[in-house]
Amino acid sequence: MTDLAKFADDVAESRSYLLRFARLQLRNDAWAEDVVAETMLAALEKPQSFGGRSSLRTWLVGILKFKIIDCLRANSREVASSVNTDEDAELEDLLFVPDGHFRGDTYDWPNPEQTLNSKQFLEVLDVCINQMPPTMGRVFLMREWMEFSTDEICKELQITSSNAWVLLHRARLRLRECLQLKWFGNGPAKTST
């Protein structure tokens, strides 16, 4: 097999890996399919620009992020009109008592380093992110995965910075509950012994 054919195969094999990120970030399967196709095309058109300095997947994800930004901009009207900053408005009322204290006990999360190296844990994270309401999930991944600043998020989604901070805060509260339930609590297998 030629190097180029091998390269094309490796790119093709990364499709489902890329799709997983694109779906979670865009919350729209058709758009996700499009950006992944564009990413793979861009990679196949310029195989020489992959210098092998990083792994192929890291390089592809770098291209994917640009394609996602393009997609959000091209669909900015639709993206902005689907934004709902009221998502999970009652969440804080559930997690805090009326005088402002945390309701119930809060949790200890043991073995953080070990946890981060667990493939199963990262799959649980996938599930938890997927369960966030759409706007919250998008904002959270724009911040934590695309590494946008709050200002950039506000500009892309046409929301105020206080809306963005509230959504990010609720996303973290929700993620904490989800991880507690599905990983640290009495959930399925853990890596700790």
């Binding site: 994800v61 999360w109 953080p112 946890t115 981060l116 190296n117 844990f121 990262l122 994270l125 996938d126 992110i129 934590e144 995965w145 973290r172 993620l175 904490r176 991880l179």
Partner: peptide
Amino acid sequence: FMRKSMKAWG
């Protein structure tokens, strides 16, 4: 920890 997890996830 959640910030670090998201790095690992990415």
